[in-house]
Design a protein around this nucleic acid. Structure first.
Lengths: 183, 183
DNA sequence: GCCGTTTATGCAACGAGTTGCACAAACGGC
DNA sequence: GCCGTTTGTGCAACTCGTTGCATAAACGGC
């Protein structure tokens, strides 16, 4: 359900073609709700059918290969407003790295895990750096409007998450090295 | 793919019936890789077909309604060992709460979001408390073997994650209240 | 002996995300 | 004018997770 409303929100910020949306989901929006262009086009179809978005600009042009700009309808805005207040449980976190570590604990096969943790550490470090750059670029000045503050809040969620991961990864590497030495 | 190996790992720690496995995924194992009993039975079928697990005990009994104990085969252990070292990219995090906040920022509909954040805060606080109880119960003494240390490491990952969320939620509530007052 | 609950296994349909690929117009080089 | 690349839209098949329900034995109460 969230993809639907992520798209509506993004289109509300500014109307776009499918590909433009895809690019937004590659940079900013995708940091908290990633989506491929296939997902996006599929969802756009469904949103059009539901009347929550509509085609803007010349509708005479037939489609395939041609950019199609879409925007949010009144109904779309209304459904978004309704959705904001709906119940949502935090979705269960899944960590394949944790599974790997339990598997390593059960088999005694510790070698491969250390590499896996190192790769995770590198990935999270890179992501953190990306987020920091965005923060420097977009949120450096103290005076933000409400929208800016909220965007910053979302970014800080990513920052906190990455920092937590990095701290844990370092912790994990230390333990794994200690276990390796004392074998 | 991870569910497969989560199940093999759990069965390696001790063989079990489908329902016993389900219970493990409700308590310990499910904290980092949740799974419903439907998912588990489906995967068990596929693991049996692949020869990675096998039925233990009397195979004469026909099944439906009767407990069936399964254990890991040699091949199962081998495939688990192979999997441990395989590449895995950290799977993209998805946060519906972040989407909601962006939606709130775009529409100006801030009321519902504050509730949503409060619910998340409550959920994460409860989970943190659960993890802390497990830590007190299972990892209180300083002298753990390698397996124990690794289990503790996995638990600490959950602890760090929940703490990060809680900190951010409090931050978020503060901001939302400030924005509400200054409207 | 019947009946509701618990234990246990399982199917079917759906929804969401992933992977691989196809098709079409436009643009730039030569 | 042809050809490769870029821009853009889109389908199909698959995997994984969720929801709702079916089935069957065993146990306990009365």
């Amino acid at each position: 359900m969230s993809l639907r409303f992520a798209i509506i929100t993004s289109l509300l910020e500014r109307e776009a073609t499918g590909l433009e949306l895809t690019r937004r989901f590659d940079r900013s929006f995708g940091y908290f709700w990633p989506a491929s262009h296939q997902q996006i086009y599929r969802e756009l179809r469904s949103l059009l059918d539901a009347g929550l978005i509509e085609e803007k600009g010349d509708p005479a042009r037939p489609g395939r290969g041609q950019p199609r700009v879409v925007g949010v309808t009144e109904e779309g805005v209304a459904s978004l407003r309704r959705w904001i207040g709906e119940l949502d449980e935090p979705r269960p976190e899944r960590s394949s790295l944790a599974v790997r570590i339990r598997a390593a604990a059960a088999t005694g096969e510790l070698g491969g895990v250390e590499d896996a943790v190192r790769r995770h550490l590198a990935a999270h470090t890179a992501t953190l750096e990306t987020y920091r750059e965005i923060e420097r670029r977009d949120f450096a000045d103290r005076l933000l409007d409400a929208e800016g503050e909220l965007h910053h809040l979302v970014l800080r969620s990513g920052l906190a998450n990455e920092q937590a991961w990095i701290g844990w990864c370092e912790d994990a590497l230390e333990l794994l090295q200690r276990l390796r030495r004392s074998e």
